Simulated assay, not measured.
Amino acid sequence: MGLHEFGWGGVYISPLFIYALLALGLTALLRLLLQATPLGRQIWHEALFDCALFVLILCGITWALSGTP
Rank of each mutant, 00 (worst) to 15 (best):
L16C: 11
L3I: 14
E46A: 00
R31C: 04
L65T: 03
E46T: 01
Q35V: 03
L26C: 10
V55E: 07
T68Q: 13
L30G: 06
T62E: 14
I43L: 08
F54L: 10
T68H: 10
R31T: 05
L65N: 01
P69S: 15
P15W: 01
G40E: 06
H4G: 09
L30K: 08
G10R: 10
D50F: 03
G40M: 03
W44Y: 09
I57A: 02
R31M: 11
G7R: 10
L53G: 00
C59Y: 11
L30A: 13
C59G: 07
Q35D: 00
L29Y: 10
G67R: 09
W63G: 12
L58R: 10
A47E: 07
A28M: 14
L39Q: 07
I57P: 03
I61W: 02
V11T: 14
E46M: 00
Q42H: 12
I13H: 09
V11A: 12
A47D: 03
Y19H: 10
G60K: 03
C51N: 11
H45E: 02
L56E: 10
L16M: 12
T27P: 06
R31E: 05
A64M: 13
A47F: 11
F17M: 15
P38F: 06
E5G: 11
S14P: 12
G67H: 09
